[in-house]
């Protein structure tokens, strides 16, 4: 029961983007299309799971004083791994994510989960936590990417979904669109919560 709770909390209740406002830079930067959002989400999820598991495994051997630098080294190692693998096997995605691949290392979600969860819990739970948080992050990126891609380009995953007579709202895939979209999506979630509270 508690295992399921650790896994599912990242989906909505503690969604890293919508509820904790973490990892915002990549969230805004790469969501001009669903494909980029998905790629970034999966890359970050991979790093999150690996670093959570490894940190949980070594947590008892690491002196408390240097735990943060150690976490950073662990995370940076996995990020470089993803970076190299992506450059070798998915060069196009690697190019379009650009600088945000190495910047996964400073994604506050990953260090945050290491410090708040993996450093204190066993391997199994840390794995589930990483999986759930990663899933929540990926879902958030895909949602924002979908909104921006449909409105700004009239397509979804690269396929046209709106009729040709629809004039794309270009601003949505430009930088301002990223800020506006996340602002209104956050507002929408707040509205849902407020309504739930009001009913209670």
């Amino acid at each position: 029961m508690s295992a399921w709770k650790e896994f599912s909390k990242g989906f909505y209740k503690q969604n890293p983007v919508f509820k904790q406002a973490l990892g915002l830079c990549p969230t805004l930067a790469v969501t001009s299309s669903v494909e980029n959002g998905l790629g970034m989400g999966l890359a970050a999820t991979f790093v999150l799971i690996c670093s959570n598991v490894l940190i949980s495994l070594i947590r008892k051997g690491v002196p408390n004083k240097i735990r943060i630098p150690v976490y950073i080294v662990v995370i940076a190692t996995f990020v470089t791994l993803v970076d190299l693998a992506m450059a070798g096997f998915m060069p196009d995605l690697h190019k379009s994510l650009g600088i945000f691949v190495p910047l996964i290392v400073v994604n506050c979600i990953i260090l945050g989960r290491a410090e708040a969860f993996a450093g204190k819990n066993n391997v199994g739970l840390s794995l589930l936590d990483g999986l759930g948080m990663g899933f929540g992050f990926t879902a958030a990126l895909c949602l924002l990417g979908a909104i921006r891609e449909v409105m700004g380009n009239g397509s979804l995953m690269g396929f046209p979904v709106l009729s040709a007579s629809f004039e794309p709202v270009l601003i949505m895939i430009l930088p301002p669109g990223a800020f506006l979209t996340i602002g209104f999506v956050l507002g929408f979630f707040n509205w849902l919560e407020n309504r739930k509270d009001a009913k209670r």
């Binding site: 301002p176 990223a178 800020f179 956050l186 507002g187 707040n190």
Partner: peptide, 21 residues
Amino acid sequence: RSLQGIPIAFIMAGLMAMAFL
């Protein structure tokens, strides 16, 4: 009420980003 705090900050940032465009 739903937009108070972070959401309105993002919307403001969006408007400023437009200006910076």
